[in-house]
Each structure stands twice: as C-alpha cells, then as structure tokens.
C-alpha cells in the first residue's frame, strides 16, 4: 500500500510542476488579454481624437480662435462664416438649468427612497425611476414636442414671464414671448432624462451609510432632516457628486431629444424662452447635407464638445479629490 502511494507521489511530482506552469501561462495570458482590452480602449480614444482633429483641420485653420467667439453661423456663403458661440452657449445653458432642476429633485427622491419611503413601496418607486432611464431619447423628444411643449407654452412659461419678466437684470433671462421650442423646454426634458442617473446613484450610495451612524444620530434626538444633512450627505458626498457628474456628461451630449425641441437657432437672445441650439443638436441637424468647410466646421464643433466634456469630467475629478482631502480620507 505504502509503496503504491509513494509511487503515486513520485508520479504526481512532475504533474504538479506542469500544473503550476499551466497556471502561470494562463495567468500571463489573462494579464495580456485584459491589458489588450484596456489598450484597445485607449487606441480607440486616440483614434477618435486624431480623426476629429483631421476632420476639423480645414475649419480650424480657416477660423482659428474666432470660431469660439463668433455668433454668426452662415456656412452657405461663398466665404463661409461659422462661429460656435451659439451652440456652446446653448449647451452650457441647457445643461446648467437641467442640473439646477434635476440635482435637488433627484437627490430628494433618493433621500425619500432610502429614509422615508414605506419599505413595500421602495422597490416599485425605484423601478419606476430606473425605467425613466430606459426610455429612448427620441421618445423624450417626441413627447417634449407634442405634449410638454404645448403645455409649457400655455401654462408655465406665461406664468414665469409674468412673475420674473418685469424684474431688473433677471428680467432679460425670463423675457417673452413664450415658445414651444426653447432652451427652457430643452433643459426641462434634459432634467427628466438625467434624473434617473442622479437618483439611482445617490440611492445606492445612501444605502452604504452604516446604520449605526444614523441610529446614533436618531438616538441623540436628531430629526430625519438633520440625519440626512449631517450624517448621510457628508458620508456619501463623493458618490453623489460622481452621480451628478455622470448626469452632467449625459446632459452635455444629449442629441436627439434636444434637437426636437430646442428650436435650432444659432442666435443668442439671452432669454431662456427663446429658441437656441446645442453643439450636438447643430451637428445632428446639419451633418447629413453638409460638405467641405461646412462639414469640417461641424466636426470642429464635435471636437469642442469632446474637449468640453473632458474638461467637465476633469473638473469633477479634481473636485472629488479636494473633497476627499478635506475629509481626511
């Protein structure tokens, strides 16, 4: 018996080395496969940047920095004039207003879902919010065009114009007339579209707050509001900001829904009830029938959006790092 076992052990010895070799090789190949996957993404990103720059080059050399400061968009002229100020303004304004609406509402929903909502209702509520994220943007566009737009023109916009239009300084922002296709409507649709991102992420990070912290706060007599303000939000700030930035990224780049309802006008009037355009809406509208310098100008717009989004994400990273430093983590 013992001899047989010994013989088996001897026979197994080289096997073990072989098996280890297999592990090593599979480890190495796994390492290279994952590294390849990561490098592919980098190569794609680089390729996109390079092709954008190549496509935008004629416009870049023709217009230079004037592209950023010109409001006029007249690609059909013999000497075309193209400026990105209108689209940049529209992109920033719609995203800003959308965030102004969506962040408090989205975080509010998340607080309700994690702290206040009766447990049996939490799942259905959360599901409903997440379903919002699954609706294709063209549906939002059509809904905004056929349902929300007419509603806003008859109710919300006139009320806002009446309330704020007469005030000094801010009056210009709320100047009439009401319009079915406007920056305001586009921002509102954007707010609805990005709401699920903010809510879903905030809810997930709120759920990570250790119950013991909250219970301690409740134990010393805190109200729900005080617990949320002084325990939940500070504990999860980084995660919430991350969700907000993700939503902002989506708002900046959203195309189809915005193209439907923003009015596609390159003029800047200063009023949020006037039609405008965004970078992505301008590209979506004009790319198919463009050629030559016009197309190059549109690609340059795309490059600008790329830079803009990158800048926003970089700023978010920086903000997060400073928050983390402040918290001493």
């Amino acid at each position: 018996m013992a001899m047989i076992a010994e013989a088996q052990a001897v026979e197994q010895a080289p096997d073990r080395a072989g098996a280890l070799g297999v592990f090593r090789r599979s480890d190495a190949s796994f390492y290279w496969l994952t590294r390849l996957a990561a490098l592919t993404v980098l190569a794609l990103l680089g390729g996109i940047i390079v092709s954008l720059v190549i496509g935008a080059w004629p416009a870049l050399t023709t217009f230079g920095l004037d592209f950023l400061t010109t409001q006029r968009w007249a690609p059909q002229l013999d000497t075309p004039v193209m400026g990105a100020l209108g689209p940049i303004y529209g992109t920033l304004v719609t995203s800003f207003v959308a965030m102004l609406i969506a962040v408090p509402v989205g975080v509010g929903i998340a607080i309700f879902l994690t702290e206040l909502c009766p447990i049996p209702l939490r799942k259905p509520f959360a599901l409903a919010i997440e379903l919002l994220a699954g609706i294709p943007s063209i549906i939002y566009g059509m809904w905004g065009f056929f349902v929300l737009g007419p509603f806003l023109v008859e109710t919300v916009q006139p009320a806002m114009i009446a309330a704020f239009g007469g005030l000094p300084i801010v009056g210009a922002i709320f100047a009439g007339p009401a319009s079915q296709l406007s920056l305001f409507n586009a921002a509102l649709i954007l707010a609805i579209m990005i709401l699920p991102f903010i809510t879903a992420i905030s809810r997930d990070v709120f759920a990570t707050v250790p119950p013991v912290l909250k219970e301690a706060a409740y134990g010393v007599g805190c109200t729900t509001w005080e617990v949320v303000r002084n325990v939940v939000i500070p504990y999860t700030r980084v995660g919430v900001v991350g969700g907000v930035m993700l939503a902002l990224g989506r708002a900046l780049g959203e195309t189809m829904a915005v193209t439907f309802i923003i009015g596609n006008s390159f003029k800047i009037t200063g009023s949020i009830f006037s039609p405008g355009t965004t970078i992505s809406a301008a590209i979506a509208s004009e790319f198919a029938e463009s050629s030559g310098l016009h197309q190059s100008g549109l690609i340059l717009l795309g490059l600008l959006l790329f830079v803009l989004t990158f800048a926003v994400l970089a700023a978010a990273r920086l903000m997060l790092r400073r928050l983390e430093l402040k918290q001493g983590r």
Binding site: R72, W73, A74, P75, Q76, L77, S179, Q180, L181, T259, F260, G263, N264, S265, F266, P275, T277, S285, E286, E289, S290, H294
Partner: peptide, 13 residues
Amino acid sequence: GTAVEWPVGVGAK
C-alpha cells in the same frame, strides 16, 4: 442654400 443663416424663426427637423 440647403442650410442658410435664418434671420428669424425656430428650426424644426
């Protein structure tokens, strides 16, 4: 032109 610099109005797709 196929796309021009419109002085007024809203654009629809």
